[in-house]
Simulated scan of single mutants.
Amino acid sequence: MKSGRSLSELAHELERQMLTKQDLVLPSSLLQCRTNERGRLNLVVESGNQARIGVSEYDVTSLARRQLADKLKIPFAYFERMREGQPGLLDHNVNTWLQTEGSRWMVRTLDDEVRAVLSDRYRRLDNFDLAEHVLPILQRLEGARFESVELTETKMYLKVITARVTFEVAPGDIVQAGVVVSNSEVGCGTLSVQPLIYRLVCSNGLIASDHALRKTHVGRALASSEEPITVFRDDTLAADDRAFFLKVRDVVEAAVSEATFRQIAMKLQKTRDISLAGDPVKTVEVLANRYLFNDTERAGVLRHLIAEGDLSGYGLVNAVTHYSQDVDDYDRATEFEALGGKLIELAPTEWKGLAQAM
């Protein structure tokens, strides 16, 4: 499992972000795009009352640029081509559509940057609130240890293992139960709670999609006030998700229960009986094409499969989850852990296509 930051570092950064992040709910017509000759794009809030929002001009992250292009129905490749080669044309196109869009948006900012451009129906289930409610629940798990926690540009992850519940997949090959809680504040996924299996021999993590709890960030449109711009700071958000966070507690406890864990661990164990009778290179190639690996990822999974010398379905699952530790990007590494969970759910016919690839 890929390591992240310490729990205290996570808490410090969440507290820092709580003090600086800000949400603006406003009509698109109050936004203006300004791009300089070097391709640096800023969004400007065109309002006479800057005292309320503090900053009128924001840098824009790559993700927010993609979301802005999507909302204005401008193909992102063309959006970026204009930004890099014809910034004046980009400003003209974007500003024309901003004036005619006629929608209210939520613009999420952090450190004087626009980090997300979302619908005004986006429901804020924020990382600080989630951590405040969930960390005590996780800490109360018997034998709990925070194996990996991280806060990326798009998501927060809390990965916790408990030594209380174990399973022997093979002689001397022990796995432990765990749970992963993840959330995105910028529209890159749901708030989710999923079971996690941790393999002691190689520190692999496998995320199971079964028995998961997911909460989408969609709610009712935020009521507009008399002011054209509605400003929300993190410390003024209404605590209207308490019932949901109570439900999280129940799902966390279920995820690390003996029954749930054994069910998932036995699915993993059954992959030992699947022989990769075909060409291992072709097997990984089929897997890579199905799950969109790049060349580096394909080579990395194949390297682990050959190095570990287990040409079985179990060996392939472990090659995928072990490779996650080599991936620089934490979000992508977690996707490989989740892919391990998808593999143990494959139907026999799907495994046949992988195992007999020639």
Results as ranks from 00 to 15, higher is better:
residue 197 I to W: 00
residue 198 Y to M: 05
residue 198 Y to D: 00
residue 199 R to Y: 13
residue 201 V to R: 13
residue 206 L to M: 15
residue 209 S to R: 08
residue 211 H to Y: 14
residue 212 A to N: 01
residue 212 A to G: 04
residue 212 A to R: 05
residue 214 R to S: 15
residue 214 R to N: 10
residue 215 K to C: 08
residue 217 H to A: 14
residue 217 H to F: 12
residue 218 V to S: 12
residue 223 A to Q: 08
residue 224 S to L: 11
residue 225 S to K: 08
residue 225 S to P: 00
residue 225 S to E: 12
residue 227 E to F: 07
residue 228 P to H: 05
residue 229 I to A: 01
residue 230 T to S: 12
residue 230 T to K: 13
residue 231 V to D: 01
residue 231 V to W: 01
residue 233 R to G: 02
residue 235 D to N: 11
residue 236 T to I: 06
residue 237 L to P: 00
residue 239 A to L: 12
residue 239 A to P: 02
residue 242 R to V: 12
residue 244 F to V: 12
residue 244 F to L: 15
residue 245 F to L: 14
residue 245 F to M: 15
residue 246 L to T: 14
residue 246 L to W: 09
residue 248 V to D: 04
residue 249 R to C: 04
residue 250 D to F: 03
residue 250 D to T: 10
residue 251 V to K: 12
residue 256 V to Y: 02
residue 259 A to W: 00
residue 260 T to L: 00
residue 260 T to E: 03
residue 262 R to E: 10
residue 263 Q to D: 14
residue 265 A to F: 07
residue 266 M to I: 09
residue 267 K to D: 04
residue 267 K to N: 01
residue 267 K to M: 07
residue 277 A to P: 00
residue 277 A to T: 07
residue 278 G to Q: 02
residue 283 T to F: 09
residue 284 V to C: 04
residue 284 V to K: 04
residue 285 E to C: 04
residue 285 E to V: 06
residue 289 N to Y: 09
residue 290 R to I: 09
residue 291 Y to T: 05
